[in-house]
Every structure is written in structure tokens, then in C-alpha cells.
Design a binder for these strands. Structure first.
Lengths: 220, 220
DNA sequence: GTCTATAAGGGGATAGAC
DNA sequence: GTCTATCCCCTTATAGAC
């Protein structure tokens, strides 16, 4: 009688409710974990502190994510899925002009720093520390899409639409410039003497980066 | 008889030899500590592993640096002294033209990433994690020198020598672009499919950043 | 799913002999 | 200055009751 057949469309209330609880708890854990990993790094974050922030006991948290490493990998995965989906490539607007495509890319990346600063910081921590957990993922996912973007930029150069710059350095500089408003926000806030960055700061950053880079590579 | 007066120019051999040992050991510890803190962060670096890399026992290491935090602060201090001395300001060449001053600044910063990548990574880790240890130092040292640099850029703009860009964003972008070749070298190596960056990569980075930014702000 | 209890180990730091 | 021995806390993770 306690055996519940795993029927899809006739799921008993009990089972359905359990899975809703699981989803809610997992989502909450992932959210606070991202925040804490961003602020304290992997080693600096105690499982206990994550559980506390999520409003449950450590043991209960470990019921959902059996180990800290598994949880960390899930946090990374969540970030990367978002980045790959929205950020990595230029190619989602084939028809546009180079200047328009590049400017949109830059503005989207700054916007990502504004809306997902913690994800960016977790990612930055990972990379600085040698990318122990996501080296493979980057090799399998980042490289190919970047190659396509590089080829696109090369085609613009060959068509005489922009200056003959090195496309790799172009992307490295765009990534660095846009992500710095998330990763180094502490330093930026410090010198700007404010507690946190405001809308206008991100706006100013987008404008500056887009203007300087587009003009700098001969697209404006 | 065992009491040695602290005379300056008549120091007994024994004391002098001891102090040489101390200096050598401290230097070696600081060096390997910078490397390990860069790769693993503060929390990810065991005192034991620093001692081992320095070729001595943990207890012996703690004789020179009584605590891990004291050692870490010294590592940070060492990096910052170097940066402040050589990097932070534009002002050491009053006579030059804006384009020349800015280009030199950019090239020096890329060079810093090449010659002191570990220092840059330790610094980056600190900032990303909210600058717990060097917030004060930055407030006392970075802000003032930046303000001077910002004022200088403003004077260039007022003199009509360059486009009216926001000087703060200019510096944030220069910092990010130049430091990324140290901090994110793992990612850069990954997509360039090489084990480490070479001379020509830094050269290419300097050229790209200097060209794009100078042209981008109307200085070329 | 959640709790109490606890195992098991790592890591920072100190005491004291030599 | 260096070594042996040790303390003790923090942290991850598991066992088992409810």
C-alpha cells in the first residue's frame, strides 16, 4: 500500500507535494550558495553557512545535495547554462551590421554583470584558481563558439568593414571590460565612494565600452 | 654575557648571521606563499603546503610568520608596494603628450601582468571576495592617486586633446583589460590552446589595447 | 524530510626540548 | 632556529531515530 507506481499523469498528491518541496528547497539552496561562493570562494564557504542562509539544518541541506562539491558543480552549471544561452555568441542576429552586433553584445554582457554579479564572481574565482572544475566544460563549449565568433570578425575585416585587429584580443578585452563591473565591483564602489553601483553606472559603462571599442576598431 | 647591546655598526657575527638567515627564509616563504595564495586563495591554501614549498616544517615557518593571516597580509603588502610604486599613476612623466603617457601606462600594466601574474591574482581574489584585508589600504592609497589621474585626464579633455569620455570608466577598462592577461590567463590559454602565454601574446595584447583605447578616445 | 548524535579528518597554532 | 609532540577547533559527512 505504501508502494506508489510512478505513473506520470496520475501522480498521487503525496508524491507531487514532495517533489514540489524538493524543487523549492533546491532552488533556494542554489541561490544562496551562489551568493556565498561568490563572496567567499569554494573553500571559504562552510556548508553550514549555506544551510543557515537557506533556512534549514546542514544535515537537511545535505539530503538535497549529498556533498559540497556536487552543490558547487550545480551552481557552476547553472551559471554557465545562462551564459552560454545568452552571452557567448554574436551569431544570433545574422542580418545586422557589425557595429550593431558588437554593440549589442557589449551591452548584453554589461547587463549580465548587473543582473548576475554573483554568477560572474563564482566564474571568476574558478578561472583565477586554474578552472579545476570547469576546464573540461570550457574546452567542450566555449572554444567552438568562440571560434565561430572569431571567424565572423575575420570576415568583417576581410570585407574591409573594420580595422585589421586580432579577434582574440578583441574578445578578451570585451570580456574583461564588461565583467569587471561584476567581479571588481568592490573596488569600483570604493573609488566611486558608493555602497553599490547604480543603473546610471552600468549605463555609463555600457556607453563607454561600446563607444571606445567600436571607434577603436574602426566601426564608428 | 648573553646580553648583546643593540649597537648598529658593531654587530656581532652571530646576530648578523641569524638575521641573514631570517631574511632569506622570509623571502622564500613570501615568494612561495604568493604563488599558492594566487592558485588556491587564502582559505584554499594550507600553512603546511606553504612550508613544504619553502622547504621547511610548518612549525619553523610559523616561527617567521606567527600566523597565516600575518603572512597573507605581508604578501598583499608586497604586491601593493610594487603596484603603487610602478603602476598606479600616470603622473611620472609630466612633459609627455597624452597619447604617449596613456600608451606607456597601458604597456607597463600589461608588462606587470606578464612579470607578476601571481601578485595580480592574489589581488583579484581579494577584490572579488570583498577586499576584507585591503579595503582600508585602498581607501587610503588608491583613491587619492586615482583622483589625480582623473583630474589629469579631465584637463586633457578640457584642452580638447581627446574625446569627452568618463575618466573613471577609462581607468576601470584599462585595469580590467590589462590585468585579465594575468588573472584570466587560464581561460586565455584554454581558448588559444597553449600551456602558457608567450612574449608575442603579451606584445599583441599591449598593441591591441593601446591601439583600440587611444583611437577609441580620440587620441590617435 | 527532518532531527540528534557522532564519526573522521584537516588545519592553525602552541609548548617545550634541543 | 629547528624539531617533536600535541591541543583543539572547525568542517564535512554519515548513521539512525522519528
Amino acid at each position: 500500500m505504501s508502494e506508489l507506481p510512478a505513473s506520470e499523469n496520475d501522480q498521487p498528491k503525496k508524491a507531487r507535494r514532495r517533489s514540489v518541496i524538493r524543487e523549492n528547497h533546491e532552488a533556494r539552496i542554489l541561490q544562496v550558495a551562489e551568493d556565498l561562493f561568490a563572496r567567499n570562494g569554494f573553500n571559504g564557504t562552510a556548508v553550514d553557512s549555506i544551510a543557515e542562509a537557506a533556512g534549514m539544518s546542514k544535515q537537511n541541506m545535505l539530503y538535497y545535495f549529498p556533498s559540497k562539491e556536487i552543490l558547487y558543480r550545480r551552481v557552476l552549471q547553472q551559471i554557465l547554462d545562462l551564459w552560454v544561452e545568452k552571452m557567448v555568441l554574436l551569431l544570433d542576429q545574422d542580418g545586422g551590421e557589425p557595429a550593431e552586433i558588437l554593440e549589442n553584445y557589449i551591452r548584453r554582457k554589461v547587463d549580465m554583470s548587473r543582473t548576475h554579479p554573483n554568477g560572474s564572481k563564482v566564474f571568476a574565482n574558478e578561472i583565477i584558481n586554474g578552472a579545476p572544475y570547469l576546464r573540461e566544460y570550457l574546452q567542450e563549449n566555449l572554444i567552438d563558439s568562440l571560434e565561430k565568433d572569431v571567424a565572423l570578425v575575420r570576415s568583417w575585416i576581410e570585407a574591409g568593414k573594420m580595422d585589421p585587429v586580432d579577434p582574440y584580443h578583441l574578445f578578451f578585452v570585451i570580456w574583461a571590460s564588461t565583467q569587471t563591473y561584476a567581479d571588481f565591483s568592490t573596488q569600483i564602489c570604493l573609488v566611486m565612494k558608493k555602497d553599490e553601483l547604480e543603473e546610471t553606472d552600468y549605463q555609463g559603462a555600457s556607453d563607454f565600452i561600446a563607444n571606445v571599442i567600436l571607434k577603436g576598431v574602426g566601426l564608428r
